[in-house]
Amino acid sequence: MSAPAVAAAGVWKYFGDYPALRDVRFELQPGECLALLGRNGAGKTTLLRILGGLSGASKGAVEINGGDVRASETRAKIGWLGHSIGLYDELSARENLRTFGALYGVTTAMITEWLAKVNLSHVADSPVREYSRGMRQRLAVARSFLHEPKLLLLDEPFTSLDDKAIALLQGLLAEARAGGATIILSTHQIREAMELASKVALLDRGKLVHFGERTREMVEDPGYLYRTYGGAA
């Protein structure tokens, strides 16, 4: 059997003496999609940042496809989409994608292709500063999918997106999953998350209080999960 796509083994994260994550352990197989739920301050972003190699675990270990996150080859297969768009305002769309593409070894042809895919070809050479909110978001989505990541980490992806961008993102996520990519997304919006997810994880004050398959009840009744396992807002 091959290594799991994501393996968190007893992950702790301390801020001083306060444990923001407590003994989080779970495994995801390639092609699974995990919805990471929990109220503000439950540790969703902290966990995502550790999985993406932005932050180190205080105790325990994280393995992505059997490799260390801070190994360059591992991160070459991770796509990150945070709260903010992660783009340079003063550079054009093409320059932005070229810069990030160069770090991942993406060809110019693929960049042109992606610009067309997110419908930005006509403005590819104007600075991002001049873009509308929706255009910036589409470019951010292109930036995180550019290198065909095997693991996608999305922090509250639906909160800041407009309808068009949400549709685009959902399409791309479905496509990526079909291609065997693993997805973890943290979210407040239970409905969108449930439509995509195959697994559900619930964090409460740094503890993983539930990890399991997505069930019918969860999709039909948004309050079900919180009522059953706690951690409600």
Binding site: Y18, G41, R205, G206
Partner: peptide, 13 residues
């Protein structure tokens, strides 16, 4: 000081 800081964070949580 560290203890106080941790307690404060617990209280916020």
């Amino acid at each position: 000081q560290r203890e106080i800081d941790a307690l404060r964070r617990y209280a916020h949580a």
